[in-house]
Amino acid sequence: MHADAVRNDAVRNDAVRNDAVRNAPAFSVSRLTFRYERKVAVSCDSLEIHRGETVAFTGSNGSGKTTMLKLLNGLLGPYDGRIDFLGLPLARNPLLRDRSVFVHQHPVLFSGTVKDNFEYALRLKRVRGAEAAKRIAMTVERFSIGPLLEREAGRLSGGETQRVAVARAVAAGADVILLDEPTSSMDSASGSAIRAFLLELRRSGTTLVFSTHDASLVLDLAGRSVRFESGRVVDEPSTGGTL
């Protein structure tokens, strides 16, 4: 279970990892403190997010939701305390980039078509050719985004961009998806499309963690909500997972 042992023995490494993955929660945070420009931006004594769970981060602007999401995805550091992802420390975690993706509030796509974006994300996972085509076709089918496939990524609307960004993460194989304000500043049609997306992901057992101001999204989607107050995390009891 310790990082040193993982580094020292490749065989045991796999055994340890598999064991960890099987039993461990998606995220396990303890005594975390992250400072930005010497001020405490996020502090959290304890937080566990189980695999397959859908968790909403709520709280006012600047309360640390986005920072926490980025910390969980290893995009920010260094920090004090400990974050485990699937039972292994986040730093040098071999599973992090394969299994987890963070999606921005206003995501960016790369130059080229939507299809180019999917192919690029798959290429980063060393998936090419027929296998890549199959994965893209499956993703397109699953989220009904066929009409977008050949469009220039830079010319999509905000809602379309959001959907493509999530689909890109899924196509790349992520089953732990972190989303920052997935339905903010979006018309109701796009909002409900994203909502349908997330429901579909939840049904298939994907771990979803998202920040939001949207109370109805929390009610519809989240099994649990975690409230943030000026950087402090208050782990709230389950809301019961109403559908």
Binding site: R97, S100, V101, H106, V108, F110, A121, L124, A169, A172
Partner: peptide
């Protein structure tokens, strides 16, 4: 836009 770098990181680009 710093989001480009973060997106590349999160997608696992070396």
């Amino acid at each position: 836009d710093p989001r480009y770098n973060e997106t590349l990181l999160t997608l696992g680009a070396r």
